[in-house]
Write a protein that binds this DNA or RNA. Structure first.
Lengths: 215, 215
DNA sequence: CCTACCGATCGGTAGG
DNA sequence: CCTACCGATCGGTAGG
């Protein structure tokens, strides 16, 4: 595994990574050529290789940097004394803020990681799986503690993470609501969807859970 | 715009489209070569052109076929006499079943449409926007009717559709739960998340909506 | 940072 | 359905 060169803020490598990320997001990693990136920077393609090792290195840097940020936040949340549903809410809010503030990098680490070469791909998939398992473990404790309704934790993790990754389309198409209400509305839907429901309900409440197709 | 040749079931064109879809899903559209597709079929690359016009045509067929299925279903739901939250639930279930049964095609129409060439791209984006606007309109009526909580309909559409598209990762990684409980659990989270909440609540319920970071 | 250039691979065509 | 092949473009290197 190659040594990790973190690309200091403001360095040329950092500028290349940023421009490349925007292009990877718009066109996808394989469809983005080194010539595209070079043009965005304002140099010829071979000059890029004075600052980076390869096209794959850019992808690797982005994917693993984002993975590290999420893992670090998760560790903090695991150690905090909050209620389990609050932990989940905190994770949801962190993911949303990352999608709002660093969406190009986050998008790439979510959608383009499959283009990572061989061993890096396996490493990344393992980290991804472990992260999701740790989320599922928090959900399970919240269920046991009756903070969270009886749901399959695996499905809940899937639902939460993919819902948030949809913020990409908010970024792409003109930000039709402001970031704050995007966050509050999405948090509300997800947290209320997870919350434990006491059995006392208004009588009409269970009706819509039955399929009424063709009615 | 080229004439639409629908690719009869069981035709060679249909077989090519299916194999190509699987590859587009695994590697992405630009990274999938005609030689890859040919190899999966068991012929040489130029032979494919006896059945299809171009690589782009395959992408076009998949994207617009899926778009048509969703639009047709939406029209039925709009005309049905259900409650608005039931309409939304029906749409959610249809999307989930499509992700379960035709996930390769649905995935492509959700993630690879950006590689559609010029005018087709604009057409597709318009259809996509209109579909989402019609979903938002149903949600708004449900909110006005106090079936659905006070949420931003645009954010709700985003949350619903992207949550469902995450079923892709269920398909990719071994289907850790069965399709039925995937559907029921995801429907529960989303529908309960949207449902109108009467103001009478257990006293602890509002606590977790406040951010407790660093507590 | 550049020009010049490499071998490989791309989507697709010609011709049979 | 094939072989042979096209011009274009790819990631990357050599050399300065």
């Amino acid at each position: 595994m190659a040594k990790i060169v973190p690309a200091k803020n403001g360095s040329k490598k950092d500028a290349i990574t940023r421009k490349a990320s925007a292009l990877f997001m718009k066109k996808g990693f394989p469809a983005t050529s080194m010539r595209d990136i070079a043009e965005a920077i304002g140099v010829e393609a071979p000059s890029l290789y004075n600052h980076i090792e390869s096209k794959n290195e850019i992808l690797k840097d982005v994917c693993f940097r984002i993975a590290r940020l999420f893992t670090n936040h998760l560790r903090e949340v695991e150690l905090s004394p909050e209620l389990y549903l609050s932990k989940i809410e905190s994770i949801i809010r962190f993911h949303i803020s990352m999608m709002v503030e660093e969406y190009e990098s986050v998008y790439i680490s979510e959608h383009e990681w499959k283009h990572l070469p061989g061993p890096l791909l396996n490493d990344f998939k393992t980290r991804r799986r472990n992260y999701r398992l740790r989320l599922a473990a928090i959900l399970q404790k919240g269920i046991d503690n009756k903070e969270i309704g009886i749901i399959n934790p695996y499905v809940a993790v899937l639902t939460i993470l993919s819902a948030i990754s949809g913020i990409e389309s908010w970024q792409r198409s003109g930000k039709k609501v402001d970031a704050k209400s995007l966050e509050e509305n999405m948090v509300k839907i997800l947290v209320e969807g997870l919350r434990y429901q006491p059995e006392i309900k208004s009588p009409s409440n269970h009706l819509t859970l039955k399929r009424q197709k063709g009615l």
